[in-house]
Design a protein around this nucleic acid. Structure first.
Lengths: 196, 196
DNA sequence: GGGCAAAACTAACACTTATTAGTTTTTTGG
DNA sequence: CCAAAAAACTAATAAGTGTTAGTTTTGCCC
């Protein structure tokens, strides 16, 4: 059969990973088979193994790429000298952007990290906990400076991260509201509430 | 082998469903096998079929029980004459309560509804959409009455539902804060924001 | 305590899974 | 245009899946 044709500047491995993200998103990692993946690319299943090591390696690659993006953006944001609320808003906006632009990979990372095998599972969870910890610290700093209410900082972080994650249900309504509006509305809700 | 002993006032079927919820929660529906489930009960896999029709029937039962609880609570809340913000708060509190008290079932319903087979999948999604629709209407009514800011009502609902759903990550920190505090903090955040 | 229904068991089925081995085809570089 | 490397193929394996059939055990009721 004809060879896989990756786009410009992408290896075959990257193409497979990208297709896998789409497949895993729609069926779930556990249910998606290597045969499904091969078919979506136009090739027989064993051919994939010329380019990747295993199914679990693909998942690993997806999860850690996403985690890496979030982590490095957070580090960068924390270093600035903006008011705390601006930093929080920037973090929220970055999450929203990731959800909208890298949807498949973020979705898979959010849903299927459970299927990572050790020691990667522990690595992943540690990275996530570390992210949360730094975010909590930021909220605490904001409260200390009087820029943020004295709410339990962990609950605040949980609420924010969960809310943006919920954008996975967004797709259906894409037409009714621009993504700019969506971003602004959500940031405003999470910072200022809805009560009048 | 000795017979399954359900607790008082529960059938064997209910016991199996309860154990299944716990199992599905920790491994995921797709990965959890009937043999796993049987082992967690102390029985051989085929014995389960004396009590249930199929694996998918169990999932169906879990998902629709949870969906039914949410739907009927919403109906009840909408009928009252409280201020809109009170109603919204009551809905949020109910979601939090379900997450804390019926964790396994709610978790499975949130994560594994994708594996429902037709026509149940469509039924489930319709029920969910209907729930969202009514919730959106409530927010709109609140805005019309001037009790709620003029934010996009669908974004508001999405943010709220996602935030409470995120309580699935709660467990780790149970000790540091009472559930009452958790509830109050989250409701306050979602209604009034965090900015000072 | 004997009978009967409920509920357990064992054995087996037809499939599907990820992955390997070995081979053939295709593309690339000189 | 030929050789070498890359990437496809086919065939096969061992393990695991949900579920059925048929049989044996268990426990309640008269």
């Amino acid at each position: 059969m004809a060879r896989i044709k990756p786009g410009k500047n992408t290896t075959r491995k990257e193409l497979i990973t990208r297709k896998a993200a789409t497949l895993f998103k729609s069926k779930g990692y556990a249910v998606a088979s290597m045969r499904d993946l091969a078919e979506s690319i136009g090739v027989e299943a064993p051919s994939l193994y010329n380019h990747i090591g295993s199914k679990s390696e693909i998942l690993r690659s997806i999860c850690f790429t996403v985690a890496g993006s979030f982590t490095s953006h957070l580090e960068q944001t924390l270093q600035g000298t903006d008011p705390i609320l601006h930093k929080v808003a920037a973090i929220i906006r970055f999450h929203i952007g990731m959800m909208l632009n890298d949807f498949d990979a973020v979705y898979v990372s959010n849903h299927d990290w459970k299927h990572l095998d050790e020691p990667y599972l522990s690595d992943f969870l540690n990275q996530r906990r570390e992210y949360e910890r730094k975010f909590v610290q930021l909220i605490q700093e904001g409260a200390r400076r009087g820029e943020i209410k004295d709410t339990d900082p962990y609950v605040v972080v949980l609420t924010i991260l969960s809310a943006v994650r919920g954008l996975e249900f967004w797709q259906h309504h894409k037409k009714n509201i621009s993504t700019d509006n969506l971003e602004n509305n959500m940031v405003d809700h999470l910072l200022n509430g809805i009560a009048k």
